[in-house]
Amino acid sequence: MVALAPSLGTILDVRRRAAWREPSALPGFRGAFAFTLVYAGLIILLPLAALVARPWEHSPADLVHGILQPRTLAALRLSFVAALAAAVVNTAAGLVIAWVLNRYDFPGRRVVDALVDLPFALPTAVAGIALATLYGPNGWIGSLLAPLGVKVAFTPLGVFVALLAVGLPFVVRAVQPVLEDLDTALEEAAQTLGANTLQTFARVILPALSPALLTGFSLAFARGAGEYGSVIFIAGNMPGVSEIGPLVIVTRLEAYDYAGAAAVGLTMLAISLAVLIATNWAQVRLARRGAP
């Protein structure tokens, strides 16, 4: 009979928790969440806060001046233009490779499939010296191109070539799962309705893949614009000609010009994020259009 009176604890305990999270019968949120926040705060947020704060410490004019130097501008332009060009080529090449890997059976398919990830796993410095040698005057490919008057190593073209390898897996791995899920019945339906191979591809398959292609493109672009290791060996690093953005940061840091280095870093990050956000927005719209 005592029990029938609701215990004070039960009444008071109702919803004592903060409203920002839904209550759960599972324990351990507090600890895991606190660790996550502290870790992400110290490892990601704190250093990025420095990147955002420090370019302005002398005066905003300094920031603008630091960016607008011809040498810096040329380096940023090279990084972003080469990344853009490489991402475009990679989108096309990645689509073909993903298609071949998912649709056809041929000897060594699994090995090739695994090899696509090599640029993810191969240290950039290793790729860098390999590319510099390969496309150098005495390299396997460089010696073939030299008689044609094409110079790749130590020119802006070298930057572009290096970024081709860097971005490729992003596109392939973005497209593959979508291709996997794409119902072959769609293609078959298009064919029974009289579409030829090209029409089927252009009007049925490509629209379905476009959000994934856009994702792959933007990731390849962002990664390429910031790439350092695989580029500096082949680029030649001539100021104003084949010097890339990240190298300007390194040079300024070596001169203890923290604000200047931070200014270039912040600019590069801002451009990359703007492209990522824009493509993300476009991708969401594309996906919504394609939703059944």
Binding site: S7, T10, I11, D13, V14, R15, P23
Partner: peptide
């Protein structure tokens, strides 16, 4: 009853034991 949701008000007793506690 399973303890996966907590009610805003009210009581649950099992053989006189406060179940919500």
């Amino acid at each position: 009853l399973a303890g996966l949701e907590t009610p805003d008000h009210g009581c649950v007793f099992l053989d006189g034991v406060d179940f919500l506690a």
